[in-house]
Nucleic acid binder design. Sequence first.
DNA 1: TTGCTAATGTTATAATATTGCAAATTCCAC
DNA 2: GTGGAATTTGCAATATTATAACATTAGCAA
Lengths: 163, 163
Amino acid sequence: MSPSALPYRPHNHDACVAQALTEARTICQQHNARLTPTRERVLELIWQSHKPLGAYDVLAVLAADGHNAAPPTVYRALDFLQQHGLVHRIASLNAFVGCTHPGKNHQGLFLICRCCGNVLELTAPGVSDAVKNAAADEAFQPDNMTIEVSGTCPGCASDTAHD
Amino acid sequence: MSPSALPYRPHNHDACVAQALTEARTICQQHNARLTPTRERVLELIWQSHKPLGAYDVLAVLAADGHNAAPPTVYRALDFLQQHGLVHRIASLNAFVGCTHPGKNHQGLFLICRCCGNVLELTAPGVSDAVKNAAADEAFQPDNMTIEVSGTCPGCASDTAHD
DNA sequence: TTGCTAATGTTATAATATTGCAAATTCCAC
DNA sequence: GTGGAATTTGCAATATTATAACATTAGCAA
Ligand SMILES: [Zn+2]
Ligand SMILES: [Zn+2]
Ligand SMILES: [Zn+2]
Ligand SMILES: [Zn+2]
């Protein structure tokens, strides 16, 4: 199994978070963008697991933090993070997940487990090429793709196998 | 250009609608499902163009019809129509569009024009195979795919070409 | 300092979707 | 046809997700 399959097996998730935050700082510096405390905190929360988090979930944690935030605070932070390629929005869930390939130019494909909720982001150039070809056949100029797959991850499949 | 590229060029759209309704009746009969007046009317409204329609847009037209409907009426009708493969929900737009391949077993790929709003549904087996392969490489069992591409359709591209 | 821009706070509201229960309709066996 | 089950609809309330509009503050440079 490829090492990218991280969410599906035990791993040192604190290291995931730490790395994501470090990379985010670097990327924001390169972009001359300010990773303010609120933005950084939101990113950290999004990374608290490999399960997508809703904007209002983020909001609730901020509130618990003592940060008296309103929805726009969260949505603005999320917009910023998306803009800089640090998080992705999962359209089929109205939720957000940390990008596992930040800084790299990539088209994500998301494998969403219905059972455990974890999301694995793949780069899948083969898929985006196939989509581009299909679009080109219709003379359509793509500019953004949403590719999301719901199903069962290997962990959950083996859990339920011995029923 | 393939004949499926219908929304992007002038065509007898009344014929589109009529055919969609006829096929819907047939399919519901085959499924032993009841295409009630409300459901049929909602399907007709969804088909009023090749642009996806929001649930509340449908609701507004029903209201104008004199039908005193509440949101659940519309969402239930849309659920029914989705269940029977007569409409698709476009996750990136929170809106619904008529299925152009009803009755056929297919995985849709949607080309969404940002400019005119029209959506072309493709079957694109190449794409779904590529997605299935990518999923299989991670031992993931897909069960539903969302593949949506935003961009510029050929009509809109040629309109803006001579700027 | 002053003035500019980006970022945040705040309030309100818009837009999308669901729950739960009661009433009506339709279906089907008898 | 009639009774009873199952499906469909009506309806009120509410949940969830997202944005608009405007005031305030922080960061930064001339
Ligand atoms: Zn992790
Ligand atoms: Zn990514
Ligand atoms: Zn048409
Ligand atoms: Zn379809």
